[in-house]
Lab assay of single mutants.
Amino acid sequence: MGFKLLSKLLVYLTASIMAIASPLAFSVDSSGEYPTVSEIPVGEVRLYQIADGVWSHIATQSFDGAVYPSNGLIVRDGDELLLIDTAWGAKNTAALLAEIEKQIGLPVTRAVSTHFHDDRVGGVDVLRAAGVATYASPSTRRLAEVEGNEIPTHSLEGLSSSGDAVRFGPVELFYPGAAHSTDNLIVYVPSASVLYGGCAIYELSRTSAGNVADADLAEWPTSIERIQQHYPEAQFVIPGHGLPGGLDLLKHTTNVVKAHTNRSVVE
């Protein structure tokens, strides 16, 4: 069995187990497998329904001669939608809004960016022009300005110390501490036991640490421990890039980060 097929099978099995364990909360999309990078042309966006009122959005972007996937989250909030992270750029984010209108038909009224990198804030200006209120932590807003990236308009308070959590509509926002970046936030959907790890969490097929220019490698494993301790009931975990899975993604990420750190020390 090929690795790609095995990865998709694991996603399907995880979703099936969740649907059985929580039949009222989960209505997993039966329309197909989780979209992969090879299936999404740059400039297009796919939506994948995880649970009743919960979707991931998947886009792709060219970077350094390669094409990478990027995940975000959409959560229903009454007759409105909360968006977590842009679709990595203005063109993708405009396509995301169009796809949401086509498939869901509810307005996106608020959006949260989970850290300051372009795959999370690139497209904020498109959201703002569409009347979406954009939010991020003060740290993310400051770092985005320093980096020359787009800056969300509103500040999220109460997320300055490791372990801080605040309720934001249908989700809980959690600051686990520094990891992929010093400002990275985690998003949890309690009604569906869905954990969105953003770039602080890796997919299972990833074996290298990737972009760690703004990471705190020493603190990252401790931050992941905080996530595990705060959300032990999480059933569906979405990484910032690639295929979702279960809580095993947290341990896998820790292993990859520690291996990278150990290699760096040896070198």
Rank of each mutant, 00 (worst) to 15 (best):
H241V: 04
T86P: 06
V132G: 10
P221C: 07
A133E: 13
T93V: 01
G177M: 05
T134A: 12
L173C: 09
I100N: 00
S38V: 04
D125S: 15
S56T: 09
K258H: 11
E267I: 01
I84W: 00
A19Y: 03
W220K: 08
L217G: 09
P107Y: 05
K258S: 07
Y188R: 11
Y68K: 05
V132M: 02
H230A: 08
L243E: 04
V146L: 03
F116Y: 15
V265R: 06
V132P: 12
S139A: 15
Y135E: 02
D85M: 00
T86R: 00
G245V: 06
E147Y: 15
G123D: 05
P190C: 01
A200K: 02
L247E: 14
S56Y: 02
A215V: 10
A259S: 02
D125W: 15
D29Q: 07
D125A: 04
A15H: 02
Y135W: 02
P244I: 15
V124M: 01
G169T: 09
S56F: 03
I40W: 06
K102N: 02
R142E: 04
G78E: 10
A179C: 15
F26P: 03
D118T: 12
G65K: 13
Q228W: 11
S160V: 07
K91F: 05
M18E: 04
G242D: 09
E157G: 10
L9G: 07
P176T: 07
S208I: 13
R142G: 08
E203Q: 04
R142C: 02
I40S: 08
T14E: 06
L204I: 11
L10Y: 09
R206L: 14
N262E: 06
H57N: 13
A215Q: 11
S56W: 07
D119A: 15
L96P: 00
H241S: 01
W220S: 14
Y12Q: 15
Q61P: 09
D64F: 12
Y34V: 08
G2F: 07
V166I: 14
A133R: 13
S7L: 06
L159S: 07
A259K: 01
G246P: 04
T222C: 12
E219N: 00
G53I: 13
E33D: 11
D64K: 10
E150I: 00
Y231P: 02
S181K: 01
A111Q: 14
A234E: 14
V146Q: 08
A19V: 09
A136W: 08
V121F: 14
G65W: 04
G32N: 00
I50W: 12
I20L: 03
V166F: 06
S155Q: 15
S160K: 11
A218E: 09
R46M: 13
G197V: 08
V45H: 08
D248F: 00
T253D: 05
I50K: 09
E44C: 05
D118M: 01
A218D: 14
A130C: 04
F3C: 08
V194W: 07
P176L: 12
I100M: 15
G89L: 07
I84L: 11
V166K: 06
D164I: 12
V212L: 10
E267W: 07
V257R: 12
V37I: 06
D79I: 14
D64N: 03
E150D: 15
S62T: 06
T261Q: 04
A90Y: 04
L159E: 05
L82M: 14
P152K: 14
E150V: 11
L9P: 06
I201G: 05
Y175I: 04
T134I: 12
V212I: 05
A165H: 15
G198V: 12
E225W: 08
D77E: 06
K91I: 12
A87Y: 00
S22E: 11
V194T: 03
F63P: 01
H115I: 00
N92L: 10
T36R: 06
V11E: 05
P69Y: 07
V187N: 03
S193R: 07
E157L: 11
V37H: 14
